[in-house]
Amino acid sequence: MLRDLGLEGSGSDDAVYRFLIAHAAATESDLARALAIPATVVTRAVSQLRDLGLIVVEPAVPASTSSPTEHRWRAVAPELAIGPMVARSRDRLRRAEDAFLELVDAYRREHTASAASDLVEFVEGRAAQAAWISRLESGARRSIDVFQTGRNLVVPVAESIYEDPPEPEPEPEGARGASAGFDPLAEPATAHHDGVRYRVVVDTDFLTEPAAIRALDERLALGHEVRIVDDPLAKLVIVDGELGMIQVSGSASVVLRAPLVVLGTQLFETTWRHARPYFSDGTQISTEDRRVLQLMLAGLTDAAAASQLGTSPRTIQRRLRALMNRAQVTSRVQLGWHAMRNNWI
């Protein structure tokens, strides 16, 4: 959890922090007993969490009439301790994406075509972009990293990453720019490269697309890792950290080669670290309730969430009310905080 937030931390640090989140306060001895981990490990975790500003000490109380006093530690509210860090990370991410696209544009304008072709290649038209993405996917040896959005449909990542490249088709006069209607959510085939790690980040706009949940569930079934961000993404594919493709306009994309592909890789890694998992093991609620929470946190209306899950807005409202009662909160904002604190999402 702490590493996902961009902080240094171990599994023991996570366990101690989660325990203190769920309890009013505890001593190091309490923590060692409750978590069944050595006292020395607890001491290191407490020191790390204290330095990060995630926990604070309460006044010392005697452990017994004859033993030395022990500090009792309590967690700082996540919205106070972590909220500002998340906000700063989002700002850095926006600036990184703006700088990345600015560099790509500057290179295109300032270099000759022959020199630019060594680093970047402009790809225009629906069929050409789909063919390039399929070529990238088929050549992957280690990893495929993807940004997927429903905001701009020119680069059909979710479809073409599985399918053979389509035969090039001549585009009618004036067709470029109209290719945004190309459906990126076509049913994926079962093709999958053994040994290749797939990581996919989707944004809120993607979750509003028809069949988005089905598409993500199919990715999970294939062993892909999926995370969600609230801010809009540009479509991006990076293969093996060596070759990539990013959408730069409504009708064109850029193929990135070294060294420019490093910028795309850094952008993806930063986004991945700060995105929230779409699905994780160990959750305490049902799969259906977790999907409802994911869509609520992504900002979808009850009607939009119901459409994604094939149910009614009233059912969505009933599930959320039941979760609020379970969490003993009175608003959806409070429910969201409770869900994040208690590993419901």
Rank of each mutant, 00 (worst) to 15 (best):
W344M: 08
V155H: 03
L119K: 10
G53S: 07
E79R: 15
A158I: 07
V42G: 02
R142Q: 09
A24R: 14
G310T: 00
R135I: 08
L320I: 07
L297W: 09
R176H: 10
A339N: 09
R273I: 12
P38H: 03
R219L: 10
G250E: 04
V61I: 13
Q308H: 01
L2E: 04
D183P: 06
D13K: 01
R74W: 05
R95G: 10
A77F: 08
E121R: 07
D289V: 07
R321C: 10
R199A: 02
S134H: 05
A327P: 00
L300K: 02
A15M: 03
D145P: 06
H192F: 13
S160R: 10
W344V: 00
A115M: 15
A60H: 03
L320C: 00
F19V: 02
H224M: 09
R108P: 03
R18N: 07
W344K: 07
A99T: 01
I144W: 10
A130K: 07
G195A: 02
G174K: 02
M324V: 03
R18I: 07
E159R: 11
G177K: 06
P259C: 00
E218T: 08
A175D: 06
A186E: 14
R321G: 09
S249Y: 07
A158T: 06
A252E: 15
D14M: 07
E163R: 09
A275R: 09
A25N: 04
D13F: 01
E169F: 04
V200Q: 06
A24G: 12
E137W: 13
R18C: 01
A36C: 11
Q328Y: 08
A106Y: 12
A211S: 14
L263Y: 10
S138N: 14
E8Y: 14
R332F: 05
L5N: 06
L243P: 09
S286W: 07
L2F: 07
S138C: 11
L236C: 10
E225D: 08
G299R: 02
R176N: 06
V120Q: 14
M324A: 04
A75I: 01
L222Y: 10
S249R: 00
R50I: 06
V254M: 03
L185T: 11
K235S: 13
P313Q: 05
